[in-house]
Write a protein that binds this DNA or RNA. Structure first.
Lengths: 343, 343
DNA sequence: AGTTAAAATTAACGCGCGTAAAATTTTAAT
DNA sequence: ATTAAAATTTTACGCGCGTTAATTTTAACT
């Protein structure tokens, strides 16, 4: 590696004997130049390590190679996992992913969208906050920038939505729970931030009716993203009060279930699907920690990588196709029942 | 909001009646212009919503307002929490944070450093991978860019290091465990990725000697970042084999402890500090989920926000001071004992 | 060999803004 | 009212690269 510092593409052009416009082509797509010149450039690159100025590159270009990825709350392992999967998909496709978190805040989500607009990304993959989102802002954003939503849907926002089929997954879980013991009560938040919660409640009511069972919905007070805390406190109170008419609780998501398990343990209530257990608890999402709870949590596995891959590939198709597809397509993946010991 | 789209600062200058250089000053520091002109500009901004082009702004500027934040593994809630704290500190100080994850990969860490170099950030806050890091690359990076390390130290890399005092915290935990029951065995990974693990082992040996106790170190095979899995498998085998000579296990970090608790539950071993329990398990870090394990995990709380705030303020001081401080300072925060039910 | 299409070169302009220097205006202080 | 300091305007250049059009070279054919 030679010590001479190269300041710009002009100098690099002089050194490696290739004209600047050709170099410009090369850096935007190495395969767009003849094999022999590509080899020359790459050889020179080895010796002198020059990299074009990112800011100057993107200044004039209308379409950047950046893909914005915005999730509602990165401290939630669900989103850090799916965010990571999406990042990798973008890298593989030759784009530069930029992962942002809204930290559960509506204002932060708007700010991040604003930032992204300034970054002129090729496209954006967005998992919206949900109820707290400014739907109109997101719809407007989708008119300016190729946008694919995942995890949580917002009507008519973006070009497509990729998520999981809550009706299928909840029905699957209800079916299993009814077959293997008492029918489940539903435990959820009164004001859920995530719109999937509403779908899951509807799915639960629907499924219970079809199973000829009486539905029981219990709602926890509390707002924000500290789901475990809410599950622990509200769930603990309900357990202590004997509020649940059956011995089986289906929690709207795993993080609530983790709190509920913690509450049950604190009250000395034995949880599990085996003889001698007093309570069954099931969750939804297959949270990364669900297999390490005590007892390990029976839950529905969302296909993280499939959702991530589909969201990414849908966006890439959009970018390549150029034309905006007339119909907004919604793709839902089936959940998979994961039977562990808690139910 | 008027509909006329403003393309550049020139047009905006014409519309609001302020010269372009003054506008340029304003956007780089609103307080640097006279109060009356600032009011005029902000009024026009309300009406026409113009934002300067990010790329053009940063192209010529030597010092960007971007602060790079690089953590080893964002899917680990410890790092997503501390990353978030650092992000907020940067925003408050008027910088634009950019949070990146190395996903546990050495190559990704190098790539991210490369990316950051191209972004010409004002400074970088780095929590290195640790053993897997390319120390020489990081040291070189620190010579080009103002760099502060946190969580894991690398000798002579960057201008400062902020972390927690493992000798203090482990001694505190050992002391508590010895006072309240049998002396602890140490459970750790044989090839820990994080250098804190080595410090903790040394601290454990040291502390046990000072307490006049025999040290017992148990090392789990397995590599990578799936600590819970490793704790569950290796810990479970050791428990089943009756490998531990005392009834108290100090895990090198909470994620191993979570795996160990899961293993103990699976084996029907009752964990806790109360009468009737067969095993005590303690961790280190106060992982966000540590309070929801069964039983809740006794651990050492690292002061996340203090470490984040200090790392950030150290970097800001560096940026303002201009001169590189001659001495590389290392700041260590004390850990706090969190007594829950597991030990 | 000649023909042609593909690729590279040359030359030149523009992007949107940072920034510097000099001239001018405004503000604050005497 | 006088003066000095501070803020703004004018003018003008440059950053590093994208991009285009016209020209020349190269490679792949008949």
């Amino acid at each position: 590696m030679s010590k001479t510092k190269i300041r710009n593409m002009e100098e690099f052009s002089a050194i490696c004997g290739i004209s600047r416009p050709t170099l410009s082509k090369f850096f935007n797509d190495p395969t767009s130049v003849r094999r022999s010149t590509r080899a020359k450039i790459e050889a020179a690159l080895e010796k002198y390590d020059y990299r074009p100025n990112i800011y100057a590159m993107n200044q004039n270009r209308t379409k950047t190679r950046t893909i914005g990825i915005l999730v509602p709350y990165l401290a939630d392992p669900f989103f850090s996992e799916i965010g990571r999967a999406v990042e990798l998909a973008c890298i593989e496709a030759g784009y530069s992913p930029l992962l942002l978190s809204s930290h559960g805040s509506r204002q932060q989500e708007v700010d991040n969208l604003d930032l992204l607009r300034g970054l002129k990304p090729a496209g954006v993959l967005l998992a919206p906050l949900g109820r707290d989102s400014d739907a109109e802002v997101i719809r407007r954003f989708g008119r300016d920038v190729p946008l694919v939503l995942f995890d949580a849907n917002i009507e008519d926002a973006g070009e497509a939505f990729v998520g999981s089929d809550n009706f299928q997954s909840i029905d699957l879980m209800v079916d299993y729970l009814c077959r293997s013991g008492q029918p489940p009560c539903l435990f959820e938040m009164k004001s859920p931030v995530n719109p999937n919660a509403n779908k899951r409640r509807a799915a639960y009511l629907d499924s219970m009716a079809r199973h000829g069972q009486t539905a029981h919905v219990f709602q926890a007070d509390g707002t924000g993203w500290d789901f475990e805390e809410i599950g622990l406190n509200a769930g603990g109170r309900m357990l202590a009060d004997g509020a649940f008419p059956t011995d089986t609780i289906l929690c709207s998501n795993d993080r609530l279930a983790i709190g509920m398990l913690s509450a049950a343990f604190g009250l000395g209530i034995r949880v599990g699907h085996r003889e001698g257990a007093a309570l069954r608890v099931a969750g939804h999402d297959d949270h990364p920690f669900a297999r390490y709870t005590a007892p390990p949590l029976t839950t529905i596995a969302q296909d993280y990588s499939a959702i991530a891959a589909r969201a990414a590939s849908t966006l890439f198709a959009l970018l390549d196709g150029g034309d905006h597809t007339p119909s907004r397509e919604e793709t839902l993946f089936d959940g998979r029942l994961v039977m562990r010991d808690s139910a």
